[in-house]
Amino acid sequence: MSNDTTTRSSTSTLQDVEQFLYRQADILDERRWEEWLGLFTDDGIYWMPASADQETGEGQPNIFWEDHYLMDMRIRRVEHPYAHSQKAGHRTSHVVSNVMIESESDDEIVATSRFHMVEYRLDEQRYFGGKYTHRFARMDAGLKIKLQRVDLANVEGPFEYVMQIWL
């Protein structure tokens, strides 16, 4: 069973990662932005490629490519009193599943998972799904995201409206 990654990684690693992913989903759905930023290392990046076969986000078109500063700007923007387009009772619900540990070392874990997300806005519900690839740093304070890659199932679009919050 050489492909059975869960037996190669320790059960506690898998549990740690699963709990992290569930908590991250909860933070997004409850819009706890300060906690969101705390999920990432200082140089952590949130990345949604613009195509399925993209190997890096640097210097290329992306749907999201955000460091700490850009994420901070997005938070300030959606919470701004004059962000009129964000007043529509925007709500999301994430489910994360199929968690697998791809690799593990003393200071790093790479894990993949699948997500489904529904978003409610202006009397309409949109549906997103895709794959997360998290590169975690193991730190004294627990896991932190160095790079989160989000591959949307419908990456080519067309998109009805745009995405204002990370998925």
Binding site: M48, A50, P61, N62, I63, F64, M73, R74, R77, A83, H84, S85, Q86, A88, L122, G157, F159, Y161, V162, M163, Q164
Partner: peptide, 15 residues
Amino acid sequence: SPSTMVNADDLNNFR
């Protein structure tokens, strides 16, 4: 991009 914080507001106005 599809995550734009600019056209998000325009699209809302257009609609």
